Structure formats: C-alpha cells, structure tokens
Simulated assay, not measured.
Amino acid sequence: MKLIGSLTSPYVRKVRIVLAEKKLDYELILDDPWGPATHVTAHNPLGKVPCLIMDENGALFDSRVIVEYLDTLSPVGRLIPPPGRERVEVKRWEAVADGIMDAAAAAFMETHRRPEPQRNIDWVDRQHHKIRAGLDYMDQLLGEQSYCMGVNLCLADIAVGAALGYLDLRFPDTDWRAGHPHLARLAEKLGTRPSFAATRPPAA
C-alpha cells in the first residue's frame, strides 16, 4: 500500500497512527495538495490528502473511510468495535475530533494564507468558537477515564490525539490545555506511544 499525504495534515497523521498501531506496512508518498506539482488528483478527484493507493483495488480517500478499511486488514489491535452502540460512540468521538481539525485548518488558512485585506475575522472567530466548544464537549465526556472509551486505546483516542496535536502545531500560543485537564492528561499519555511519537509533525 502507498499513502499519499503531508507531514502536517492531521487527517494523514490519523491514518499513519492507525497503520502503526495495526502494524501494517506501507510507503509514504509526500505531496502538497496546494502546490502546482501535486499528483494526488490522479487518484482522488477532490485533490485532498490522505489518499491510500491499493495494489489492485484502486484508491481510497477521506481519513474516516481509510481507517475503517485498515482496521479490517489485521486482527491486531482492533480499533473500531463491531456494529452497535459502542461503534456509534467511537464514531461520535471521531466526528467531534475531525470537526475540530476542520475548524482549525479553516482558521489557519484564513489567517495565514489569505491576504490580510481579504480576511474575514468574524468567520475566523466562528471557527475558534467551534474548536472551544468541541474541546469542552470532549473534556467533559472523557472525564476520569483512561481512554475515550474506557480502558483500551481505540480510534476515538487516535482521532482526538491527532486533533490536539494539530492545535499545538498551528496555534502554539493558544493554551487549549487550560480548562481541559482530562484532554491534557490523555494527550500526554498518547504522546508516549511510538505511533504518536513517530508521526509528530515538524515544527511550523
């Protein structure tokens, strides 16, 4: 398998952590989807990363689709429960974490990639409100549990860890840990895992 992605994308990092936790071999192909030389469009019509190229079965895109497929490839460390209430709860965690990533990426692009006269500050504030609301929700839901779903690592933790890591990367001056002690504790624990350490994005 080949994974097309960038080192700073939290969605790509989520997939890479799953690959590491599942002990699956792959080749990482770096690509800048915003650059003129991008080649991800040859495999994903939306021109986004991550994109997983499979030997005989074409390509998969969208991190949620990719991680669900990867979890079926090996019985090692199942990360997604079978259909039922527990699975829905894991996917709910993933949806909130991905929503935080979406809002953070949108705010970063607006404030760092758009010329200042064209920036919409009200829209950026709206994205930061989404981030704060998502963090509040997850911190309360996590509580004193060791992991998002109790005592074992699952996809929920990986998605949350990728989102928190992206906030550290793009908004290092924003102390999201203040007021979110449960998430701060989880992030510290996840940071010691080899899968998280090996995929930590380079400093901006």
Score class of each variant (00 low, 15 high):
102 D>N: 08
75 P>T: 13
110 E>M: 14
67 V>Q: 02
96 V>S: 01
99 G>V: 09
104 A>F: 03
61 F>N: 06
74 S>N: 14
106 A>I: 06
62 D>Y: 01
100 I>E: 02
71 D>K: 13
61 F>S: 11
103 A>L: 08
92 R>T: 11
52 L>R: 05
67 V>M: 06
94 E>K: 04
79 L>C: 07
88 V>D: 12
90 V>Q: 03
97 A>Y: 00
81 P>V: 11
52 L>A: 06
75 P>K: 10
111 T>M: 15
65 V>T: 14
109 M>Q: 13
81 P>H: 10
83 P>A: 12
53 I>M: 06
82 P>M: 12
106 A>T: 14
67 V>P: 01
71 D>L: 12
110 E>P: 11
58 G>K: 05
74 S>W: 08
101 M>R: 02
90 V>N: 04
84 G>I: 08
53 I>T: 02
62 D>N: 13
76 V>K: 07
58 G>D: 08
106 A>H: 04
83 P>T: 12
85 R>L: 14
94 E>P: 00
103 A>W: 02
94 E>A: 13
81 P>T: 09
89 E>S: 04
73 L>W: 03
61 F>R: 01
60 L>K: 01
83 P>F: 13
85 R>K: 09
69 Y>F: 15
108 F>M: 12
109 M>S: 13
103 A>Y: 02
109 M>Y: 11
72 T>H: 13
104 A>L: 06
82 P>L: 13
83 P>E: 12
56 E>P: 02
87 R>I: 08
71 D>E: 11
107 A>V: 05
82 P>H: 09
59 A>W: 00
113 R>L: 15
92 R>A: 12
97 A>I: 03
56 E>G: 15
58 G>E: 10
56 E>F: 04
86 E>V: 09
65 V>I: 15
86 E>K: 10
58 G>P: 04
62 D>S: 08
70 L>A: 04
54 M>N: 07
109 M>K: 12
79 L>E: 01
78 R>V: 10
55 D>Y: 00
68 E>S: 13
92 R>H: 08
106 A>F: 06
61 F>V: 00
